[in-house]
Design a protein around this nucleic acid. Structure first.
Length: 666
DNA sequence: CCGCCTCGAGTTCT
DNA sequence: CTCGAGGCGG
């Protein structure tokens, strides 16, 4: 016999833990910390260990109770799980609404809008307040008994506190939170398992684990969206209140559901989530619109397996299946060979997609994508489409595996494969493809920023052999451009002007524009503030470069070898002779080196001594009188003879403001 | 040596 | 934006 006190304690612990579970997983409003929760769980576990008679099926320790199964048993649904008709635009929604209205003899009716989650529908059966079994939707008539796996989902109550119908079934959608999806796939790749294509597949895979312990590892969650049936208690007469009632029983209901009084509310709800669904922690592929009144629902009935009282207003698909016609190769600025998918054009989320990157050979092998495959293409919320995975079921056996070419598709040079990494690259830096990419990079916004020089002009200039290296940009003439035709006089002038203006870009931009491997905008910035001029940078030995924070051996090697290349040095020389600034406009330190100043008159914002100190700090020199060697006269108020002398000699003069600007910045 | 963080490179369509 | 590589601290 177990002591009554202990029995009471166990019961108390069960209730407490279940209550905190509900607070945490359903209401998202925890009252205690993890440590405290663990303590309660441990105490209950210890009691149950000592007195196995205390273990109840709804004990929180029993979420993972069952041993691995051999398979799943089929269960017949008491009330079939229906599927839904679809609407893809406002007109289709309106015609559904009109039809329902006429079937209801013109009655005005409320609807409930819910997000249609892209997960797995399940049915949970409770008897006398206890979860007795749970099943997948299957074909709607029969599903699989996955009770043991569903029990591991913390937001599913194992028992109902308070009174509940004697026997009832709720329906819900099990999903795999997006926030955990990437991590799961990382794990799978580490464990040599194929990654899941999307969170929906993860949910399906997780729910079909034979060992519930595996399922318990997965952060599955659920939203309850309907009541299958209920015996023994009076139920609300509409869907909305039914959901409120289920919520009061402890079920997790999506708080984004709304009750709508007219069709405009429905449309607004749809449009709102069309934009905002990207911020949800689950995939939603549309909005489910349900007639609220249950008696209206009964009147409307169903056609085939689709109820007339509900419709799914689908969002434009962000995924689509299409055929992979070919795999092409792009040669990038760095010479890397980047494979891309040539797709049978397909509409994904409202845009026709014809190509998508495949990253590298590794990626293709990992996904096992073959030419001729039907592939799943995705434009997940974001803009850039990607090939997710092949649809293996559509394989005919005529697909061709892809192999990286042995030679550069542009210049036919034998490609180099870096050992360890399946990344091929064309070693020929003079490869026309690389020069084209480099030229585009050189004139781009982050680089020399030459307005009006886009892809087309770059290609045309290369085509006409007017450009053989990036410095040739500064030797383009109006006549050259006119010869290219397709070009009005005005735009020709604009381009010549833009090229001229670009000579004054800050040094960091120029260094970035050169396109040195591994030197992007940040590194260019670091190099600029360290050297202030391209010459000392070009001469810096690797040993010096690696001492600079942010520059490691690989970047140092890359910089060093760039400047050791004769051709590159010629390019720099050409840039210099054509007037491109290759010094920091405002080198932070010592930027006044070799400049002789004379300060005279009364300065407003600082004393003469301060001004002179500042000049010396920046590497400049101070003269006591104006001579031909004087570079600048800083003239304050009431300047006397020195001013006259400077005027006589034509010495450049700086007002106080101009001077402050020159030394300014810090 | 490993994990974390930052930076670089490539990318689609209208 | 996303992936991978490089740098760096522990």
């Amino acid at each position: 016999m177990i002591d009554t006190n202990i029995r009471e304690r166990a019961k108390y612990l069960r209730n407490e833990i279940n209550r905190h579970n509900h607070l945490y997983h359903v209401l998202d409003r925890p009252e205690i910390g993890d440590a405290e929760y663990d303590r309660l769980m441990r105490e209950l576990g210890e009691l149950e260990n000592q007195y196995p008679g205390l273990i109840t099926t709804d004990s929180p320790t029993q979420r993972v109770g069952a041993p691995p199964a051999d398979g799943f048993t089929e269960v017949k649904h008491v009330v079939p799980l229906l599927s839904l008709g679809n609407a893809f635009n406002d007109e289709e929604l309106e015609s559904w609404h009109k039809r329902v209205t006429s079937l209801l003899d013109g009655a005005v009716f409320d609807t409930v809008c819910e997000l249609k989650m892209d997960g797995l529908a399940v049915a949970l059966t409770y008897e006398n307040g206890l979860l007795i079994h749970g099943a997948t939707r299957g074909d709607g008539l029969r599903g699989e008994d996955v009770t043991q796996n569903l029990r591991t989902i913390r937001s599913i109550p194992l028992s109902i506190s308070g009174t509940s119908p004697e026997r009832f079934e709720v329906r819900g959608e099990v999903y795999f939170p997006r926030s955990h999806f990437a991590r799961l796939n990382e794990q799978r790749i580490i464990n040599d398992l194929p990654p899941f294509a999307n969170p929906r597949n993860s949910a399906a895979g997780s729910l079909r684990q034979l060992d519930p312990r595996n399922t318990a590892q997965r952060p599955l969650d659920i939203f309850i969206y309907g009541l299958g049936y209920a015996n023994g208690t009076q139920m609300p007469d509409n869907h909305w209140d039914t959901m409120l009632y289920l919520k009061s029983l402890g079920f997790r209901i999506n708080s984004n559901n709304v009750l709508c009084h007219n069709l405009d509310d429905v449309k607004n709800y749809y449009r709102h989530w069309l934009d905002d669904r990207k911020d949800l922690d689950y995939d939603a592929d549309g909005v489910v619109v349900k007639v609220n009144s249950l008696s209206y629902q009964r009147n409307l009935g169903q056609v085939g397996r689709e109820p007339r009282w509900a419709i799914a207003y689908k969002f434009p698909a962000t995924q689509a299946v299409t055929q992979l016609l070919d795999i092409g190769i792009n040669v990038g600025r760095t010479g890397r060979l980047n494979p891309y998918a040539v797709l049978e054009p397909v509409n994904v989320g409202g845009v026709t997609v014809k190509t998508a990157t495949l990253h590298n050979e590794d990626d293709i092998l990992r996904k096992d994508v073959r030419i001729g495959d039907w592939v799943l293409v995705e434009r997940a919320g974001e803009v850039i489409p990607r090939v997710v995975a092949p649809v293996i079921e559509h394989r005919t056996g005529h697909e061709r595996k892809f192999a990286m070419p042995e030679r550069c598709p542009i210049c036919n040079t034998i490609v180099v494969r870096t050992i360890g990494v399946a990344m091929s690259s064309c070693p020929n830096t003079a490869c026309p493809a690389q020069l084209y990419e480099l030229l585009k990079h050189f004139v781009s916004k982050g680089g020399m920023d030459i307005e009006g020089m886009g892809e087309k002009l770059c290609a045309a200039l290369l085509d006409a052999s007017l450009i053989e290296d990036i410095a040739d940009v500064y030797f383009i003439t109006r006549d050259d451009l006119i010869k290219l035709d397709h070009m009005a006089d005005i735009s020709t002038d604009n381009i010549i002007n833009a090229i001229y203006k670009s000579k004054e870009r800050p040094l960091a931009r120029v260094i970035f524009a050169l396109g040195i491997l591994h030197v992007g905008s940040e590194t260019a910035e670091i190099l600029t503030s360290h050297f202030g001029d391209i010459i000392p940078l070009a001469r810096a030995p690797e040993e010096e470069l690696v001492t600079i924070p942010g520059i490691g051996p690989i970047i140092a090697q890359s910089i060093s070898s760039y400047f050791h290349d004769q051709d590159n040095m010629e390019v720099i020389e050409k840039l210099r002779t054509s007037g491109v600034r290759l010094q920091e406009e405002n080198p932070l330190e010592l930027r006044l080196t070799g400049t002789l100043f004379v300060v005279t008159g009364k300065l407003e914002s600082l004393t003469r001594a301060m001004a002179e100190t500042r000049i010396k700090e920046l590497g400049g020199a101070i003269g006591s009188s104006v001579s031909r060697k004087t570079n600048y006269l800083v003239a304050g108020k009431d300047a006397g003879s020195k001013l006259e002398e400077a005027l006589k000699l034509g010495t450049p003069m700086l007002s106080e403001d101009e001077f402050l600007k020159m030394i300014g910045g810090n």
